[in-house]
Design a protein around this nucleic acid. Structure first.
Length: 123
DNA sequence: AGGTTGACTGGGG
DNA sequence: TCCCCAGCCAACC
């Protein structure tokens, strides 16, 4: 959709107690860009890193329209499953991409977060 | 200004 | 473990 218009607009809003002078979208992208290949994080983790756990849904909304240099495929839901709607027919590019990076999928298409989950923002 | 929508979560059954 | 449901909150009618 309208990137970067939407991001710009979001930049003057405020999120809970988070003052996003840098722009909510930009903050999300900057965070996601730090996730290393072969590892994944959850929407909730990103939201927590932003300072407000309840922004998980908005993180997902932000992922919908992100720059090409953002590894959006490394963001999954708390159950370790892909919640993307990016799949084309029965083929899910997000899964294929992750498998290329070495991420394993168990039965039901679940990723073991204890193995592939990343946690570099925990201060 | 008010209602609807989610690429979400955590808790309860 | 799985399913359902009530919160959530910015974006978008």
């Amino acid at each position: 959709m309208k990137w970067p218009e939407a991001a710009m607009r979001a930049s003057n809003g405020q999120v809970g107690q988070v003052r996003n002078g840098a722009g909510l979208f930009e903050r999300v992208y900057a965070l996601v860009r730090q996730v290393p290949s072969g590892r994944v994080v959850t929407y909730g983790q990103v939201a927590a890193a932003l300072g407000n756990r309840r922004l998980a849904r908005q993180v997902g909304w932000a992922m919908r329209t992100c720059p090409d240099d953002v590894p959006w495929h490394r963001v999954v839901n708390g159950a370790g499953q892909l919640s993307t709607r990016a799949e084309v027919g029965s083929f899910n590019p997000q899964r294929a991409w992750l498998e290329e990076e070495g991420v394993e999928f168990g039965v039901g298409g679940r990723i073991d977060l204890r193995v592939c989950g990343w946690n570099g923002w925990q201060e």
